[in-house]
Design a protein around this nucleic acid. Sequence first.
DNA 1: ATCCCGAGGG
DNA 2: CCCTCTGGAT
Length: 214
Amino acid sequence: MLSKKRFLEALDIIVNMFPEAHGELEWETPFQLLIATILSAQATDKGVNKATPGLFAKYPDPESLAQADVADVEQCIRTIGLYKTKAKNIIKTSQMLVENFNSELPRDKKLLQTLPGVGRKTANVVLGETYGIPGIAVDTHVERISKRLDIVPQKASVLEVEEKLMKLIPEERWVESHHHLIFFGRYHCTARAPKCEECPVLEYCKFGKRNLNG
DNA sequence: ATCCCGAGGG
DNA sequence: CCCTCTGGAT
């Protein structure tokens, strides 16, 4: 298991690899970020960004999306995976925002998660991006990197990964670190063919050393 | 544990 | 072809 000190050293190197790391979903309002993030489940941000302009042109706010026809919303987002479930969820979420939350996003993590399609990861992303509320969203990249660096057991749940990262990283760095880890996972420490042979944190990485030695 | 599910990459 | 993508609900 990698120590806290060693992990923070590796994290600083990762930060320097992608100093400009940021959220890549495109949105104009907190509501649109929420919808885009719901749509991003098991989908690439590029795929989501391709569909959301058309969706938001027709349904820019909770009021309009709350009254939308399911079939039309499905049409708008059909190129994104899991589109049937997502169409239903974003309409219902919009209805709940209008009816229960005065058309505004609840800033409370638990409350936000009462919206259909919004789980822990999505709530963390939205609250961090819009209001700067500290949190670490554990997606497929963050989970993979945490396990490759061996800061959690290979069988750890995403919640256990989140709790471990919150222990290792100072709270004021949670939101930015999340983005750095994502960029590292998306563009370097990829799932399929990770670039271990040219990796600046190889000396910290159990997985990488084993990967190169065979 | 299983289902949902299209696009892009290797 | 097979794997992966800023998961969530049952």
